[in-house]
């Protein structure tokens, strides 16, 4: 479970202060699939970065899996990222010099798994995203959609409870985007909590829950998606 209470984030540069999040409150439950929309500059990435422990917040309270994130130091945050969070980026962020196998291996090495365990997880997750046959390929030899699948395999390999995605389909055409979203839905059905920032209203609607961020605040909560409506009906 992820709980944010009155989170503020102020970016302080030489002479400008940017209040990126204002008294931001949100609860995300186990197994949720939350899509986050909102205008550019509204604070979506800032929220996701804080949720994913990539950035610290100025004040407020943030509990992740019951643990008070504010008490963690840099090492503690790194460890928590590695154990509980999987990231998917708009630009895929694969390491260009490493083949798919090694790319998925990176977070597993930080975790300290032995070679056998790593091999099992790498193969299993590449299998899961349908790219097991291309393990020895370099990222540059794949299409964008395939690269994002590798990134998803990498994010899932550590068995995270949360999968955070910032515009995961932003660099993909709509066909590929739909494919990636279908994959995310499958993953969510298998129990991983997903928070996804997106500009694409159609994709956002496919999430179980949609929130909108405006001016650093959650402006709408608990919009039940059409799918959910169908499921209820």
């Amino acid at each position: 479970m992820l709980v944010m209470k009155n989170i503020n984030k102020i970016f302080q540069t030489a002479d400008i202060q940017t209040h990126a999040l204002r008294d931001f409150c949100l609860q995300v439950n186990e197994g949720d699939f939350v899509s986050v929309t909102g205008p550019s500059g509204s604070g979506k990435t800032t929220f996701l970065n804080i949720a994913g422990l990539l950035e610290t917040y100025t004040d407020g309270e943030f509990l992740l899996d019951g643990e008070d994130v504010g008490t963690l130091n840099d090492n503690g945050r790194s460890r928590m990222r590695n154990q509980k969070i999987g990231f998917i980026f708009q630009g895929f962020n694969l390491i260009p010099d490493l083949n798919l196998y090694d790319n998925v291996d990176v977070p597993l090495r930080y975790r300290g798994f032995n070679a056998k365990e790593r091999k099992r997880r790498i193969e299993e997750n590449l299998e899961r995203v349908g790219l097991a046959s291309r393990m020895k390929h370099l990222p540059s030899q794949l299409s964008g959609g395939q690269q994002q699948r590798v990134a998803i395999a990498r994010a899932l390999a550590t068995d995270p409870r949360f999968l955070l995605a910032d515009e995961p389909t932003g660099n993909l055409d709509s066909e590929m985007a739909k494919g990636v979203l279908t994959l995310l839905e499958e993953i969510n059905q298998q129990g991983t909590t997903i928070i996804m920032v997106t500009h694409d209203a159609e994709l956002a609607q496919r999430a179980k829950r949609t929130i909108q961020v405006k001016d650093g605040r959650v402006s709408e909560l608990e919009i039940v998606s059409p799918q959910m409506n169908q499921a209820i009906a």
């Binding site: 994913g52 990539l54 790194s78 990222r81 990231f87 390491i95």
Partner: peptide
Amino acid sequence: TRRALGATK
């Protein structure tokens, strides 16, 4: 990205 994936400093 490596840091995001859990690498410590």
